[in-house]
Amino acid sequence: MDRNQISKWLKNPGKMAHKYSFHVVYFCTGCGIIEIPPSITTRWDAERFGIIPVATPRQANLFLITGYVSTKTLKAIIRTYEQMPEPKYTVAFGSCPINGGMYYDSYNTITSLDKYIPVDGYIAGCMPRPEAVFIGVTHLWKLIDMDKADGYKRYREDYVHYRANQEQLYGQMDWPPLFPVEKKEQANL
């Protein structure tokens, strides 16, 4: 744990604070949410790492998608993701968000979440145990340290691409684009 290394704090306090204060929005899409209560309560106690659940995406910086993503819930996922303030990190939890898992051939399941929103890390398993969650968090720390957890930057840069993917799935979206989308670039895609 480098929480006690003062030199790192002085160099980049914002980044360090992000690492040790994950306020998490859990998107309880499927069975994955079952593993969250043990990890935040007495047995494993995520709060010792500064991880606490919050109610709204506005206050959060970590987005945890726990379980399979259906076409309908994806809409809410995108919206929630867009409402989170930057910097923000996304972690997909379990096998289903990676490739659809056991629902890989369902007509209604999104098999690759990464097409619609940027995902910074995956925790594989069906289900991953709380220990796996913590290992995932420590990996995320490393990624933040190396500036590789840059999903929110990718989302901003490639917004046209993401929005096009989203619109391909849903047609006209309910809300205006988060970032300005120029017509010309859209035509090129």
Binding site: P57, R58, K75, A76, I77, R79, T80, Q83, D174, W175
Partner: peptide, 9 residues
């Protein structure tokens, strides 16, 4: 209209 409403419109 970009308020938090649990992801709904």
């Amino acid at each position: 209209y970009d308020n938090y409403a649990a992801g709904a419109a």
